[in-house]
Design a protein around this nucleic acid. Structure first.
Lengths: 193, 193
DNA sequence: TATATTTTGTAATGATCAGTACAAAAAAGG
DNA sequence: CCTTTTTTGTACTGATCATTACAAAATATA
């Protein structure tokens, strides 16, 4: 009593779908486009994931895994705390200035496109933000202990305003032509700590 | 040699269209929806504006006028400079926490949805940002002259990082449930000046 | 009032949308 | 090799997409 096995790995398909959603957004990603890019037929895609929205959720979760991993990697590099925070921002700038299309951050894209009217997406992105906030807060607290960062304000306040600045940077990165603007943001944000 | 006059005022229609784009984004705003909300038939709408994209451009320009006006109004209120900057941020938070839907800022929505692949939109939003940057920079410079704000960094750097923080705040406002998070951003950002 | 010109509403255009129906294909267990 | 079960590809669904075609309506001038 068994059956035909799948010809694909779920994670591979989700990764491919993530790329499509990242580049075209939720509404801009048609089922056809998703099939093309994942290599699946519609039958398989709907049989495996149920709906476009369900696949989008999987893609957001996958982005969360990968993205947090990558960003935390940067933050956990050796060296002064401020240098690590700078690396994170420089990495974000490079993301937007290398490559033709400015895809930005998928979590932010999702927040803006669907966060206001899609509670599931809002909660998913909120979780993503929470994780980054936690990593930043811990790093900043350690910087406060070592004296690299002023202890006048609680670490969580500093983490949250850094986070906000960082997300603003990613918005600006979508449209600003002059890299100097973004570099000023980096300088100003780090000087504030 | 003359003809039938229009039954609507362009600005009224653009204002109505702006609301639709604001709430549903560019792709989410169908021609039908735009007709419904503006009160025009399709014939009139296309005869007057040419295409959905052209109308979107008009709406963005209109938002720029209104939005900059409103924000600059807040920044030009009497009182300490930091209080005025705080008012701007609090106003943004209220925008997202009052009312069912979190529409956010139309310029940011446009930047995220279309900025990466639509040069016209990118340039429009970039102009919008430039105007806000200028207003902030002038205000901060005056704060530096009066001694309210540290002169350790150039006004433009402070303006740009405030701007980034402010835009980040508007992203967070789309998904974050806990207002305290946003208030921490305000506190941290102002303390940095 | 007749003519020229434009706006207006409606009905259509073909394309694309998300999702489904269904039969053929593929494998595992008996 | 036959049955059972699931996957797969294809063809299709009705809805909606942006846009256009076009005739009726409305106005200004002659």
């Amino acid at each position: 009593m068994s059956a035909r096995p799948r010809e694909f790995k779920d994670t591979t398909v989700i990764d491919a779908a993530m790329e499509v959603f990242w580049e075209h957004g939720y509404e801009g990603s048609s089922a056809e486009k998703l099939c093309e890019h994942t290599g699946l037929g519609k039958g398989s895609l709907y049989n495996a994931f149920g709906s476009k929205h369900a696949l989008y959720e999987k893609a957001l979760k996958r982005y969360q895994e990968l993205g947090i991993e990558g960003q935390v990697d940067i933050l956990e590099q050796p060296g002064p705390v401020k240098d690590r925070l700078r690396s994170l921002m420089e990495w974000a700038i490079d993301q937007d200035f290398n490559g033709e299309e400015r895809r930005g951050c998928l979590a932010i894209n999702a927040a803006i496109e669907r966060g206001g009217k899609d509670p599931v997406v809002a909660s998913l992105v909120s979780g993503h933000i929470g994780r980054l906030e936690k990593a930043l807060s811990q790093l900043i607290a350690s910087g406060q202990r070592s004296g690299e960062i002023s202890s006048k304000r609680p670490a969580i306040v500093l983490a949250r305003s850094f986070l906000s600045s960082y997300y603003g940077l990613r918005v600006l990165g979508k449209v600003v032509e002059d890299r100097k603007v973004l570099e000023d943001v980096v300088e100003g944000t780090l000087a504030a700590l």
